[in-house]
Protein backbone atom coordinates (compact mmCIF):
# COMPACT_ATOMS: atom_id res chain seq x y z
CA UNK A 1 0.00 0.00 0.00
CA UNK A 2 1.50 3.25 -1.04
CA UNK A 3 0.97 6.06 1.44
CA UNK A 4 -0.22 8.54 -1.16
CA UNK A 5 -3.48 6.72 -1.89
CA UNK A 6 -6.13 6.57 0.76
CA UNK A 7 -8.46 3.62 1.15
CA UNK A 8 -11.45 5.89 1.31
CA UNK A 9 -12.59 8.36 -1.29
CA UNK A 10 -14.33 10.32 1.43
CA UNK A 11 -11.60 12.91 2.08
CA UNK A 12 -11.44 13.61 -1.61
CA UNK A 13 -15.24 13.75 -1.84
CA UNK A 14 -15.45 16.06 1.19
CA UNK A 15 -13.13 18.56 -0.47
CA UNK A 16 -15.21 18.62 -3.66
CA UNK A 17 -18.38 18.87 -1.58
CA UNK A 18 -17.01 21.88 0.31
CA UNK A 19 -15.98 23.41 -3.01
CA UNK A 20 -19.47 22.90 -4.38
CA UNK A 21 -20.99 24.48 -1.26
CA UNK A 22 -18.81 27.55 -1.72
CA UNK A 23 -19.64 27.82 -5.43
CA UNK A 24 -23.37 27.49 -4.76
CA UNK A 25 -23.24 30.12 -2.02
CA UNK A 26 -21.28 32.56 -4.17
CA UNK A 27 -23.63 31.92 -7.08
CA UNK A 28 -26.64 32.74 -4.90
CA UNK A 29 -25.04 35.99 -3.75
CA UNK A 30 -23.90 36.96 -7.23
CA UNK A 31 -27.02 35.99 -9.16
CA UNK A 32 -29.23 38.87 -10.11
CA UNK A 33 -31.25 37.24 -12.85
CA UNK A 34 -34.39 35.40 -11.81
CA UNK A 35 -33.95 33.18 -14.86
CA UNK A 36 -30.46 32.04 -13.95
CA UNK A 37 -31.48 31.35 -10.40
CA UNK A 38 -34.41 29.22 -11.54
CA UNK A 39 -32.09 27.16 -13.75
CA UNK A 40 -29.80 26.50 -10.81
CA UNK A 41 -32.68 25.62 -8.52
CA UNK A 42 -34.16 23.17 -11.04
CA UNK A 43 -30.75 21.63 -11.70
CA UNK A 44 -30.12 21.09 -8.00
CA UNK A 45 -33.58 19.60 -7.49
CA UNK A 46 -33.26 17.15 -10.38
CA UNK A 47 -29.71 16.24 -9.44
CA UNK A 48 -31.02 14.84 -6.13
CA UNK A 49 -33.24 12.31 -7.91
CA UNK A 50 -30.48 11.57 -10.43
CA UNK A 51 -28.09 10.78 -7.57
CA UNK A 52 -30.57 8.19 -6.33
CA UNK A 53 -30.76 6.63 -9.78
CA UNK A 54 -26.95 6.60 -10.01
CA UNK A 55 -26.80 4.54 -6.83
CA UNK A 56 -29.42 2.15 -8.18
CA UNK A 57 -28.29 1.86 -11.79
CA UNK A 58 -24.60 2.67 -11.61
CA UNK A 59 -23.62 0.97 -8.37
CA UNK A 60 -26.17 -1.80 -7.87
CA UNK A 61 -26.77 -2.38 -11.60
CA UNK A 62 -30.56 -2.29 -11.28
CA UNK A 63 -32.35 -0.24 -13.91
CA UNK A 64 -35.43 1.79 -13.07
CA UNK A 65 -37.60 3.50 -15.65
CA UNK A 66 -40.07 4.53 -12.97
CA UNK A 67 -38.13 7.03 -10.84
CA UNK A 68 -40.40 9.84 -12.01
CA UNK A 69 -43.23 8.13 -10.12
CA UNK A 70 -41.36 8.41 -6.82
CA UNK A 71 -40.74 12.08 -7.54
CA UNK A 72 -44.46 12.41 -8.09
CA UNK A 73 -45.29 10.62 -4.84
CA UNK A 74 -42.96 13.00 -3.01
CA UNK A 75 -44.57 16.00 -4.71
CA UNK A 76 -48.12 14.94 -3.89
CA UNK A 77 -47.16 13.95 -0.34
CA UNK A 78 -45.68 17.39 0.24
CA UNK A 79 -48.69 19.11 -1.32
CA UNK A 80 -51.09 17.02 0.74
CA UNK A 81 -49.21 17.74 3.95
CA UNK A 82 -49.13 21.47 3.24
CA UNK A 83 -52.66 21.99 1.91
CA UNK A 84 -54.86 19.33 3.45
CA UNK A 85 -53.06 18.80 6.74
CA UNK A 86 -51.72 22.36 7.04
CA UNK A 87 -48.34 21.09 8.24
CA UNK A 88 -45.27 23.32 8.07
CA UNK A 89 -42.95 22.95 5.05
CA UNK A 90 -40.10 21.14 6.87
CA UNK A 91 -42.51 18.46 8.09
CA UNK A 92 -43.93 18.17 4.58
CA UNK A 93 -40.43 17.61 3.22
CA UNK A 94 -39.73 14.87 5.76
CA UNK A 95 -43.02 13.17 4.85
CA UNK A 96 -42.07 13.45 1.19
CA UNK A 97 -38.85 11.55 1.87
CA UNK A 98 -40.32 8.89 4.15
CA UNK A 99 -43.42 7.97 2.16
CA UNK A 100 -41.72 7.17 -1.15
CA UNK A 101 -38.81 5.61 0.71
CA UNK A 102 -41.15 3.25 2.52
CA UNK A 103 -43.15 2.51 -0.63
CA UNK A 104 -39.90 1.88 -2.48
CA UNK A 105 -38.79 -0.55 0.20
CA UNK A 106 -42.09 -2.43 0.03
CA UNK A 107 -42.13 -2.58 -3.77
CA UNK A 108 -38.44 -3.46 -3.99
CA UNK A 109 -38.64 -7.11 -2.94
CA UNK A 110 -41.18 -8.21 -5.52
CA UNK A 111 -40.01 -5.93 -8.33
CA UNK A 112 -36.30 -6.68 -7.86
CA UNK A 113 -36.96 -10.35 -8.43
CA UNK A 114 -36.88 -9.14 -12.02
CA UNK A 115 -33.63 -8.25 -13.69
CA UNK A 116 -32.35 -6.87 -16.99
CA UNK A 117 -35.03 -6.05 -19.54
CA UNK A 118 -37.83 -7.46 -17.38
CA UNK A 119 -36.91 -5.01 -14.63
CA UNK A 120 -36.90 -2.19 -17.18
CA UNK A 121 -40.36 -3.27 -18.37
CA UNK A 122 -41.69 -3.69 -14.83
CA UNK A 123 -40.50 -0.31 -13.59
CA UNK A 124 -41.68 1.41 -16.77
CA UNK A 125 -45.12 -0.10 -16.21
CA UNK A 126 -44.98 0.99 -12.57
CA UNK A 127 -44.27 4.55 -13.66
CA UNK A 128 -47.13 4.42 -16.17
CA UNK A 129 -49.53 3.09 -13.51
CA UNK A 130 -48.55 5.96 -11.22
CA UNK A 131 -49.22 8.47 -13.98
CA UNK A 132 -52.68 7.05 -14.68
CA UNK A 133 -53.56 7.00 -10.98
CA UNK A 134 -52.23 10.53 -10.44
CA UNK A 135 -54.22 11.78 -13.41
CA UNK A 136 -57.43 10.09 -12.21
CA UNK A 137 -57.42 10.27 -8.43
CA UNK A 138 -58.78 13.78 -8.43
CA UNK A 139 -59.64 14.06 -4.74
CA UNK A 140 -55.96 13.92 -3.82
CA UNK A 141 -54.09 15.02 -6.93
CA UNK A 142 -56.56 17.32 -8.61
CA UNK A 143 -56.09 15.24 -11.77
CA UNK A 144 -54.61 16.82 -14.89
CA UNK A 145 -56.72 19.94 -14.58
CA UNK A 146 -56.33 21.84 -12.33
CA UNK A 147 -53.91 19.55 -10.52
CA UNK A 148 -52.31 21.03 -7.43
CA UNK A 149 -52.56 24.80 -7.36
CA UNK A 150 -51.43 27.60 -5.08
CA UNK A 151 -49.13 25.90 -2.65
CA UNK A 152 -48.10 28.49 -0.07
CA UNK A 153 -45.18 30.78 -0.73
CA UNK A 154 -42.24 30.12 1.55
CA UNK A 155 -41.10 33.74 1.64
CA UNK A 156 -40.19 34.86 5.14
CA UNK A 157 -38.48 37.85 6.69
CA UNK A 158 -37.08 39.49 3.60
CA UNK A 159 -36.14 36.21 1.92
CA UNK A 160 -38.05 35.68 -1.30
CA UNK A 161 -39.70 32.34 -2.15
CA UNK A 162 -37.00 31.69 -4.76
CA UNK A 163 -34.23 32.46 -2.33
CA UNK A 164 -35.64 30.10 0.32
CA UNK A 165 -36.01 27.37 -2.30
CA UNK A 166 -32.46 27.94 -3.49
CA UNK A 167 -31.22 27.45 0.07
CA UNK A 168 -33.46 24.42 0.67
CA UNK A 169 -32.49 22.78 -2.62
CA UNK A 170 -28.82 23.54 -2.01
CA UNK A 171 -28.81 22.04 1.48
CA UNK A 172 -30.79 19.04 0.24
CA UNK A 173 -28.42 18.47 -2.66
CA UNK A 174 -25.31 18.72 -0.48
CA UNK A 175 -26.83 16.31 2.04
CA UNK A 176 -27.86 13.91 -0.71
CA UNK A 177 -24.32 13.89 -2.06
CA UNK A 178 -22.89 13.41 1.42
CA UNK A 179 -25.22 10.47 2.03
CA UNK A 180 -24.50 8.93 -1.36
CA UNK A 181 -20.72 9.21 -1.29
CA UNK A 182 -20.44 7.86 2.23
CA UNK A 183 -22.85 5.07 1.41
CA UNK A 184 -20.72 3.78 -1.44
CA UNK A 185 -17.42 4.27 0.35
CA UNK A 186 -17.74 1.49 2.91
CA UNK A 187 -18.33 -2.22 2.73
CA UNK A 188 -21.98 -1.68 1.81
CA UNK A 189 -20.91 0.09 -1.39
CA UNK A 190 -18.27 -2.52 -2.20
CA UNK A 191 -20.90 -5.22 -1.72
CA UNK A 192 -23.18 -3.41 -4.17
CA UNK A 193 -20.46 -3.12 -6.78
CA UNK A 194 -19.73 -6.83 -6.57
CA UNK A 195 -23.46 -7.51 -6.79
CA UNK A 196 -23.58 -5.47 -10.01
CA UNK A 197 -21.20 -7.95 -11.66
CA UNK A 198 -22.60 -11.07 -10.05
CA UNK A 199 -25.21 -11.56 -7.35
CA UNK A 200 -23.88 -15.06 -6.80
CA UNK A 201 -20.37 -13.85 -6.00
CA UNK A 202 -21.72 -11.17 -3.65
CA UNK A 203 -23.91 -13.68 -1.82
CA UNK A 204 -21.04 -16.15 -1.44
CA UNK A 205 -18.93 -13.47 0.24
CA UNK A 206 -21.70 -12.82 2.73
CA UNK A 207 -23.72 -9.99 1.19
CA UNK A 208 -27.46 -10.30 1.78
CA UNK A 209 -28.22 -9.37 -1.82
CA UNK A 210 -31.99 -9.09 -1.50
CA UNK A 211 -31.67 -6.74 1.45
CA UNK A 212 -28.91 -4.68 -0.16
CA UNK A 213 -30.89 -4.23 -3.37
CA UNK A 214 -34.05 -3.32 -1.46
CA UNK A 215 -32.16 -0.74 0.60
CA UNK A 216 -30.73 0.93 -2.50
CA UNK A 217 -34.11 0.91 -4.19
CA UNK A 218 -35.65 2.53 -1.10
CA UNK A 219 -32.89 5.13 -0.88
CA UNK A 220 -33.25 5.98 -4.57
CA UNK A 221 -37.02 6.31 -4.04
CA UNK A 222 -36.54 8.51 -0.97
CA UNK A 223 -34.12 10.82 -2.82
CA UNK A 224 -36.58 11.01 -5.72
CA UNK A 225 -39.31 11.88 -3.23
CA UNK A 226 -37.22 14.70 -1.77
CA UNK A 227 -36.53 15.97 -5.27
CA UNK A 228 -40.22 15.83 -6.23
CA UNK A 229 -41.29 17.61 -3.04
CA UNK A 230 -38.79 20.43 -3.61
CA UNK A 231 -40.04 20.73 -7.19
CA UNK A 232 -43.61 20.97 -5.91
CA UNK A 233 -42.68 23.61 -3.32
CA UNK A 234 -40.79 25.60 -5.92
CA UNK A 235 -43.38 25.50 -8.71
CA UNK A 236 -46.34 25.82 -6.28
CA UNK A 237 -48.66 24.54 -9.03
CA UNK A 238 -48.29 21.34 -11.03
CA UNK A 239 -50.25 18.40 -12.40
CA UNK A 240 -49.71 14.72 -13.09
CA UNK A 241 -48.16 15.32 -16.50
CA UNK A 242 -45.04 16.66 -14.76
CA UNK A 243 -44.36 13.17 -13.39
CA UNK A 244 -45.00 10.93 -16.38
CA UNK A 245 -42.77 8.45 -18.14
CA UNK A 246 -40.95 11.35 -19.80
CA UNK A 247 -39.52 12.51 -16.47
CA UNK A 248 -38.22 9.01 -15.70
CA UNK A 249 -36.48 8.97 -19.07
CA UNK A 250 -35.00 12.42 -18.42
CA UNK A 251 -33.60 11.19 -15.10
CA UNK A 252 -32.06 8.26 -16.94
CA UNK A 253 -30.58 10.71 -19.44
CA UNK A 254 -29.05 12.73 -16.60
CA UNK A 255 -27.30 9.66 -15.25
CA UNK A 256 -25.90 8.44 -18.56
CA UNK A 257 -24.91 11.96 -19.61
CA UNK A 258 -22.86 12.10 -16.43
CA UNK A 259 -21.51 8.84 -15.15
CA UNK A 260 -22.55 5.42 -13.99
CA UNK A 261 -19.50 5.15 -11.74
CA UNK A 262 -19.68 8.23 -9.56
CA UNK A 263 -22.48 10.22 -7.98
CA UNK A 264 -20.83 13.45 -9.12
CA UNK A 265 -21.85 12.67 -12.68
CA UNK A 266 -25.50 13.14 -11.75
CA UNK A 267 -24.91 16.83 -11.00
CA UNK A 268 -23.31 17.40 -14.37
CA UNK A 269 -26.08 15.43 -16.10
CA UNK A 270 -28.90 17.24 -14.33
CA UNK A 271 -27.38 20.63 -15.10
CA UNK A 272 -27.00 19.70 -18.79
CA UNK A 273 -30.58 18.43 -19.12
CA UNK A 274 -32.01 21.52 -17.41
CA UNK A 275 -29.79 24.09 -19.10
CA UNK A 276 -29.94 22.88 -22.71
CA UNK A 277 -33.66 23.49 -23.31
CA UNK A 278 -33.31 26.95 -21.80
CA UNK A 279 -30.13 27.84 -23.59
CA UNK A 280 -30.86 26.78 -27.12
CA UNK A 281 -33.56 28.51 -29.09
CA UNK A 282 -36.13 26.03 -30.34
CA UNK A 283 -34.56 23.19 -28.40
CA UNK A 284 -37.87 22.22 -26.88
CA UNK A 285 -39.24 21.48 -30.33
CA UNK A 286 -36.56 18.95 -31.14
CA UNK A 287 -36.02 17.83 -27.53
CA UNK A 288 -37.10 14.21 -27.92
CA UNK A 289 -35.22 13.76 -31.16
CA UNK A 290 -32.02 15.16 -29.67
CA UNK A 291 -32.36 13.19 -26.40
CA UNK A 292 -33.01 10.04 -28.38
CA UNK A 293 -30.02 10.47 -30.66
CA UNK A 294 -27.75 11.41 -27.75
CA UNK A 295 -28.91 8.35 -25.81
CA UNK A 296 -28.25 6.08 -28.79
CA UNK A 297 -24.81 7.62 -29.22
CA UNK A 298 -23.89 7.24 -25.55
CA UNK A 299 -25.08 3.64 -25.39
CA UNK A 300 -23.03 2.81 -28.47
CA UNK A 301 -19.82 4.59 -27.64
CA UNK A 302 -19.77 5.42 -23.93
CA UNK A 303 -22.05 3.02 -22.05
CA UNK A 304 -20.52 3.94 -18.66
CA UNK A 305 -21.62 7.54 -19.11
CA UNK A 306 -20.64 10.39 -21.41
CA UNK A 307 -19.11 12.65 -18.77
CA UNK A 308 -17.04 9.83 -17.36
CA UNK A 309 -15.75 8.73 -20.75
CA UNK A 310 -14.79 12.28 -21.70
CA UNK A 311 -13.14 12.79 -18.32
CA UNK A 312 -11.08 9.65 -18.80
CA UNK A 313 -10.09 10.66 -22.30
CA UNK A 314 -8.87 13.99 -20.98
CA UNK A 315 -7.07 12.71 -17.91
CA UNK A 316 -6.06 9.42 -19.54
CA UNK A 317 -6.53 7.74 -16.24
CA UNK A 318 -8.15 4.40 -15.79
CA UNK A 319 -10.91 4.88 -13.29
CA UNK A 320 -10.54 3.08 -10.05
CA UNK A 321 -13.63 2.67 -7.93
Amino acid sequence: MTTSTSNSNLRHDAVILAGLAVVLTLAELALTSQFHRSILILSMIHAIAAIGLTLLLGYAGQVSLGQGAFMGIGAYAAAFALQKLALPAPVALVAAVLLPGLLGFLIARPILRLSGHNLALGTLALGAVFFVVAAQWRSVTGGLDPGIVDLPSLAIAGFSHERILYILAGISLLSAIAVAVSLVDGRFGRGLMVLRTSELVAACMGVDTVRAKSMVFAIAAALSGLSGALLALYLRSFNASAFGVGLSIELLMMVILGSLSTVWGAIFGAFAIIVLPNLLEGFDHAKHLIYGLVMVGIMMFAPRGLGETLFRLVTRKRSVA
Binding site: G116, I249, K287, H288, Y291, G292, M295, V296, M299, P303
Partner: peptide, 19 residues
Protein backbone atom coordinates in the same frame (compact mmCIF):
# COMPACT_ATOMS: atom_id res chain seq x y z
CA UNK B 1 -25.26 -6.41 -22.18
CA UNK B 2 -29.06 -6.48 -22.13
CA UNK B 3 -29.27 -3.22 -20.20
CA UNK B 4 -27.23 -1.34 -22.80
CA UNK B 5 -29.40 -2.69 -25.61
CA UNK B 6 -32.59 -1.85 -23.71
CA UNK B 7 -31.46 1.74 -23.24
CA UNK B 8 -30.42 1.87 -26.86
CA UNK B 9 -33.92 0.97 -28.03
CA UNK B 10 -35.35 3.50 -25.59
CA UNK B 11 -33.12 6.07 -27.27
CA UNK B 12 -34.41 5.03 -30.67
CA UNK B 13 -37.99 5.27 -29.39
CA UNK B 14 -37.37 8.82 -28.14
CA UNK B 15 -35.75 9.82 -31.41
CA UNK B 16 -38.66 8.43 -33.46
CA UNK B 17 -41.15 10.24 -31.25
CA UNK B 18 -39.19 13.46 -31.61
CA UNK B 19 -38.84 13.03 -35.36
Amino acid sequence: DPLTLVMLTIGVALALRGA
